[in-house]
Nucleic acid binder design. Structure first.
Lengths: 341, 341
DNA sequence: GTTAGCACTCTTATTTGACGAGTGCTAACC
DNA sequence: GGTTAGCACTCGTCAAATAAGAGTGCTAAC
């Protein structure tokens, strides 16, 4: 059986209607609403064919038809047209993302916020993976008699520090020396690379006199270094799922919320998605709990390099065209905000 | 009418039973379950009295009785006995709070996590208010040709830094001088105090030669200083609300979740509570949305000074004795973890 | 003061029937 | 051969009716 022009037209009408109404759509409504000069009976025959082809399903015998995941896939690949954002939406996005550029995390968090507001879905935004981040220099400063502060600066401008109580005696000079040595040794290397080196050992041999001081500082140094790689996940619009008919029973809502609260698990899923605008629909999602959801993600870049992600998660019945446009528009904006001068 | 011994006993039984079952309790169950050598009819009379006194209410004529907010108040003030924690609970708490002491926020976050696990309620934990925090020293370091890093260290050990792009030329010496001057001027003053001073002006006059450099650095310095006062609110166990019968309809659950998602508002409420273990029940809460909830908070101390809070929020029908014990035990533990050596 | 008995109230669960939406099939139509 | 009208049938939903159960409040007796 073939997917004729008319079948496609009917399928598109069903998908549009279902996305808007969340109700199974019947042959009569279809014929009336989308006056396509064709009787309900004919439409029924076509719908029956579409069901055989796997594009439609049937909640029960006497209900209208509902698009399958496969239908949504066809829709986003071929049928869907790009939705334009309203001027107001564009303005909101630019305004929220513009402001002081100093605080990366703040902007990403706001991005998640705006995204959930505009789409009425649950949104998320990941701060960039910093794998390629290169160490610039290390400072070690005395804070008080027994506390020192380790400060690591990366080429990207990212700065992390940690306070550390020392049990070994030290002088300001020795700290300085150690910091200089660390900087000399690791400047220009990526942080991931440094983490894989056997750093403590190499230090014990290199600077014999200070090995005890180094030994007590290195673990904390490594921790701090590692934390520079951390990716943060911001979410917003969690309670938006209550406005979605699919989730208006308590168990489903609960399942959804419990799923998105498992941030670690979610982060894994998101980090491993390809770059660019990616749409996964229902059973295309590998995670069990996401089989009823669709996820749309897009990537943004910082100085054309470090890559972060943002997107939404919602029911398979979502406004793919609108949401895709919004997500794209937002990443474009972020790319501009973070563009190297 | 007086609150006789017997009335109290009945009231206590009703409260205990209702806390455990969430069902209105009737005279017959009461007489059978809590064999108090007294017939249901007598109990009915007493219950009627208790209702007149405002301790019980009636969902409808032919339902059992339900404790009022007033009854809970009486219960927590006079009737309740302390519940002991199981050994396992104690162990879990110590383990979770012990580990490396370096990261304050991490410990507080874990505290919220453990608290929600043990109580099966929604928990929160506030990092300490840092009002009394005293500035220790300021460092200003060059990061690259046009970027400097401002680093502020407080007596408490808290460290904050900010990167700043400078448009004014500078040397390492001038930065050092400025940092020293700032340290000299403000060391020993509380951060809140410094924030209220007219700091830029005073600098322009004091160190004439560096006024332009100072002028471009001060705003960022102030911002960073201000961010040191920020209190963080961590929450956990949000989805626990779904296990509570009172919230098993979608609208109530939604209202609750929307309330606790308004972090700013919630933070205000929590910050303004008195120190020590505080229990507010139902209508004792000022916030509209909390009229159906009870909130239990306790304060913990760092080095016997800075004060943070943790606690739970749940239905008025909660296990006051158990939750109070847990909250107390946890703050005791935190106090120890953070005790000055 | 305490208790048994009983009528009454109210909620909840279950049943029933009516209704509407929608399908699938058949036969007629163009 | 594709299209359409007609009709029987299915299924879910809603509302009303019914029954059962829990619990109270009152009265009168102990």
């Amino acid at each position: 059986m073939e997917l004729t022009e008319r079948k496609l037209k009917i399928l598109q009408a069903i998908i549009s209607d279902f996305i808007a109404s969340a109700e199974p759509v019947g042959s009569r409504t279809l014929s009336k609403k989308y006056g396509m000069g064709i009787s309900p009976a004919t439409i029924r025959n076509e719908m029956s064919d579409l069901e055989d082809l796997g594009y439609l399903t049937h909640p029960h015998t006497s209900a209208g038809r509902v698009p399958s995941d496969r239908a949504y896939r066809l829709y986003v690949d071929y049928l869907m047209s790009k939705a334009d954002l309203t001027e107001e939406e564009k303005r909101t996005i630019s305004e929220q993302l513009a402001s002081n550029i100093t605080e990366l995390d703040g902007i990403i968090q706001r991005a998640a916020n705006v995204l959930s507001e505009i789409t009425s879905l649950t949104s998320f935004a990941l701060t960039p993976k910093q794998d390629a981040n290169v160490l610039k220099y290390v400072n070690i400063l005395p804070a008080d008699e027994e506390t020192v502060v380790i400060m690591i600066v990366a080429e990207s401008g990212k700065i992390k520090n940690a306070a550390l109580k020392l049990r070994v005696p030290y002088t300001e000079d020795s700290l300085n020396l150690l910091a200089k040595a660390l900087t000399y040794n690791y400047r220009g290397k990526t942080i991931s690379d440094i983490l894989t080196m056997d750093i403590i050992r190499s230090f014990e041999t290199d600077i014999e006199a200070m090995s005890r001081l180094a030994a007590s500082i290195m673990p904390s140094f490594m921790d701090t270094l590692e934390s520079m790689l951390d990716v943060n996940l911001y979410m917003d619009g969690l309670t938006n799922i209550f406005t979605i008919p699919e989730y208006n029973n308590i168990d489903k809502a609960r399942m959804f919320l419990e799923m998105v609260q498992k941030k670690k698990r979610l982060m894994e899923v998101l980090v491993n998605r390809d770059d660019g605008v990616i749409i996964t629909i229902g059973n295309e999602n590998k995670a069990d709990l996401m089989q009823d959801c669709s996820v749309i993600t897009a990537t943004y870049h910082i100085n054309g390099k470090l890559v972060g992600k943002l997107g939404v998660i919602g029911p398979t019945r979502m406004n793919y065209d609108k949401v895709t446009s919004v997500v794209e528009y937002m990443t474009d904006n972020l790319n501009n905000v973070f563009k190297a001068p």
